[in-house]
Design a binder for these strands. Sequence first.
DNA 1: GTGGATGGTTCATTATTCAAACCGTTGGTT
DNA 2: AACCAACGGTTTGAATAATGAACCATCCAC
Lengths: 261, 261
Amino acid sequence: MGTTAKALSLLDLFTPARPSAGLSDVARLSGLNKATCYRLLTELAAMGLVEQAGPAREYRIGPAVLRLAALREAAVPTREAALPVLTRMAEATGETAHLSHLVAGRLTTRAFVYSRAHATKVMMEDADILPFHATASGLSVLAFLPDALRDSILRHPLAQYAQRTPTDPAEVLAQLDGVRRAGLAEVASAFEADVHGIAAPLFGPVGDVIGATAIATPASRMTPVLHARISREVARGAAEITAAWGGRAPDEVAGRWAAAA
Amino acid sequence: MGTTAKALSLLDLFTPARPSAGLSDVARLSGLNKATCYRLLTELAAMGLVEQAGPAREYRIGPAVLRLAALREAAVPTREAALPVLTRMAEATGETAHLSHLVAGRLTTRAFVYSRAHATKVMMEDADILPFHATASGLSVLAFLPDALRDSILRHPLAQYAQRTPTDPAEVLAQLDGVRRAGLAEVASAFEADVHGIAAPLFGPVGDVIGATAIATPASRMTPVLHARISREVARGAAEITAAWGGRAPDEVAGRWAAAA
DNA sequence: GTGGATGGTTCATTATTCAAACCGTTGGTT
DNA sequence: AACCAACGGTTTGAATAATGAACCATCCAC
């Protein structure tokens, strides 16, 4: 791993759950030497990618990323293009629709839309990193990933989040054939207890998987009727977002989605 | 300059006017060796900070910045805090209000709000980098910058953007005393022809200047009455945004602003 | 005041970056 | 069709930078 990759990997330590961290934390979490972290953070700070705040001089993401993100959305309005579709998905089902994006081997929450149909709903957080093995979005991505990438992901230990999280790679792999056939993935109570998710992959220009869209429902509300409606909406939404992003789903998947919708 | 700084400096080559660039462009613009650029870009791409797109394989800002920006706004909602103030400034004056942020020695457009009062208005672009010597925002920042930083900025050649752009550092310096006294800066037809700008600096927790807010007007519309109204609104807006961001203006400036508003 | 944590610094060893040249392709000119 | 220039990408020994273990100084709980 080059120096630049090390520096950038420090940025990935910051999450909604841990928005800031001290020097020693960074060193521990990254596995890098403290002196190295110090220098890398100092350089990142000089460019505004991180900044030090508060009396504890903790590091957090800096303001320079705002400029970069504005540039990115202006050049490639992925979020803007997807939001109307997510909104329709949420409204048609009365549940929470969301979208995640595969970036640098991580599945990142990019957008979500709530429905106001029910007093209870599944809450989401922006910029969260989703586990592949415990979410419907993750499974739908995993199913269409090149073998080498999928293997390298499943080689890492699979964290247990809820009672029904599959922690055995074989157990995960066994589900993927079904996902490939249906173009949809489904998971219940694997990441968050009592949350039921149905997801579909999103594809890039050459049929490569680049993310997923999903609808999340409190498990108690799931019925066969709702299940059918959600499956239909997810298939339709995934087809539309893939198209809006200039992507192209593999013919087999496109056919399944068309049949479902 | 360390390796990390070099890699990150490549990100600054991308602007609204040049959202993507090829390898050779990057090498030329950055002044770095082509092989070095290649390796740096490859590492940046592996982390999703840049990506290659299109048949020409040009590089552009990648999707990873969206996650970082979402994290940043969640932790430090600068934009969200400033927008209501900008909106009021735009409505009270009928002109374009905007906000720029000093990051890593660069003044970056962070937000703007148009008014619908007139058919003509000054248009802005997000993520633009503003020249210090040719904009009211730039002058208001320059006036309150530590001497060393100001000198290092004025040491670079001052580009000519319009007829009345001051290109002599002495000419710029001569204006700064007035800016410091008033807590406001004013510039006409220096960056864009026929645009008149009035700006005020924004301050951080220890009275350090961290940006500026401004109102931009088509020069043809400027009158003494409008000038007075804009000055009042800018002073009030700057005080409010500084406060909302947890900053503290130097006593002298705070006094001037209070008197103006 | 002592122990243990913190942020920050030093310096010989080691790995990376540099510049310049070289491939194979692409797109436009003659 | 032959040519040329520019492109993205890759290779080389010589120059330059990053690295990590140990080391300070400071803070804070006990």
